[in-house]
Nucleic acid binder design. Sequence first.
DNA 1: TGGGCCATAAAAAGTCATACTTAAAGCGCG
DNA 2: CGCGCTTTAAGTATGACTTTTTATGGCCCA
Lengths: 237, 237
Amino acid sequence: MAEQADSRGQGLHARLLDALGPAITAGEYPPGTVLRTDEVAERYEVSRTVVREAVRVLESMHLVESRRRVGLTVLPTAEWNVYDPQVITWRLAGADRPRQLRSLTVLRSAVEPAAARLAAESATPQQCAELTEHALGMVATSRGHRLGEYLEHDVAFHRVVLNSSGNEMFARLGDVVAAVLTGRTRHDVMFSDPRQEAVTMHVQVAEAVREGDGERAESVMRNITVDAMAELDVLAP
Amino acid sequence: MAEQADSRGQGLHARLLDALGPAITAGEYPPGTVLRTDEVAERYEVSRTVVREAVRVLESMHLVESRRRVGLTVLPTAEWNVYDPQVITWRLAGADRPRQLRSLTVLRSAVEPAAARLAAESATPQQCAELTEHALGMVATSRGHRLGEYLEHDVAFHRVVLNSSGNEMFARLGDVVAAVLTGRTRHDVMFSDPRQEAVTMHVQVAEAVREGDGERAESVMRNITVDAMAELDVLAP
DNA sequence: TGGGCCATAAAAAGTCATACTTAAAGCGCG
DNA sequence: CGCGCTTTAAGTATGACTTTTTATGGCCCA
C-alpha cells in the first residue's frame, strides 16, 4: 500500500486498531464473538476513551457492531468493507491470504483491461511517456535477478494505467494492485526472472495506449491478467 | 444502500458524522481546510469525546488527517476511500452526484460482465432460480408504470449475479449497483416504462447463467452496461 | 397450574467535564 | 542561520452520570 505508516500506529488508538483489526480479520475473534469495552481496555492496557475510538473505526469498517447492554459483536465476513485498504492489508497479512490474493486478482482481471481501454482514449502525453518509461524499465530489469527494480516498474506501470483511465474508482485500485504484485513477489515463490512474454505484453500495452488503440490495449491487458490468474493457480493450490 | 439507518445516527458521534461527512464530500470544507476539535465541538454542541470519535472515522476514510498542534486537515479528493459505502452515499447525495454516478457506472461496466461470466460457471441451482424469478419479474412489471416493482427486481437481479460470481469483491458491489440503479430511477428522469430490449437482455443473462454459458452471459451483460452508460449520456450532459 | 404480560432492575455502552501529557510548529535569541 | 524554548492543540486518562436494552421475576388471567 502507499503508506507504510499504517502498521506502526501514531497514537494508542491506532495501535489498538492494529491489534484488533488483524485479530478479527484473521478469525481470531470469529463472527458472533462479543467483546466488552472495559474488557478490551483492560486486556490492552489502555483507557476506555482509546478503545471507543478504535471501536468507532472498526464499526465504520463493518467489522464489528456496538450495541448497548450487549457489547461489541464481531460481524460476519459478508458484512466487512473488503475494499477498505486497511482491511485489505490486514487480510493479506493474515491467514486467508491466498483466498484474498485470489479474489483481488479476479477483480484486477475485470478492472485493468477496462482501465487500459479508457487510458488509450484519454491518457495525456505525459502519462504515455511514463507508461513507456516503466515498460522499458521492465524490459531492462527482466534479466539478471533484478526483481526489486523490476517490481517497482511493474507496480508503477499498472498505477499509471489505472490513473490514466480518468476514472477515480479505477485509480483508487492502484494500491490494491500494488499490494497484489508486491505480495506475489515478496512472499510467494518468484525466484526466477519474469517471463519474457509478460514483459513484452507490457510494452505492447504502452504502445497501444500511445497510439490510442483502446481495443488492443484492453486485449493485451486482458492477457496480462489471464497470466496473473494462471500464475496464481500454479503457486497456490 | 442496504441499510436505511445510515442517516438517522444511533449516537451523537454518528449524527455528527452525518453532518461532517456530507459537508466534506460536498466540498463545503475544501481540501486543505483546517478545523479544530474544540471549534467543531462548540459548533455542533457536543463534547470533545464525541468529536474525536467522529474524527477517527473520517480519518479512517481518509477524508481528513489529524495532526497535533495543527488540527484536522481536509484531505484532497484523490486520497478519499471512494469505495466506502458511506462515502459513496454522501457523495451521491451531494453536489457532484452526476460525476459520481458516472464513475460508478464505468465501474459497473467493468465488473458486471466479469461477474456474469463467473456466475455462469458457479451459480447454484438456487441462485439460477432467483435469477430467473427476478428476470421474469422485470418482464411482468415492465409495462404499466410499475417502476417501483420493476426497480426492485432489477436491483435484486444484479445483486444475485454479483453474489453468484463467488467473488467477495464483486459481491460487495451489490450495494453500489443498487445505489446507482435506485438513484437513476428516483432522482433522474425515468417517467416512461423501461425499454423492452433491456428487459429481454436480463432474461437472456438468466438463461445463459442457467445453461452455464459464461461467454454469452458476459456478452449480454456487457450490452446491459453499455446501455446504462448510454442512458447516462442522454440524461446527464 | 401453566402461560403470557408488564414492571422493574441491572448491565453495558454512550456522554460529558476536567485534568493532565505529548508532540510539533513557530518564534526569538544567540 | 540554526538551535532551543514557548505555546498550542491534539492525545490520554478518569470518574461521574445518562440512556437504552435485555432479562428476570412476580402477578394476573385463562
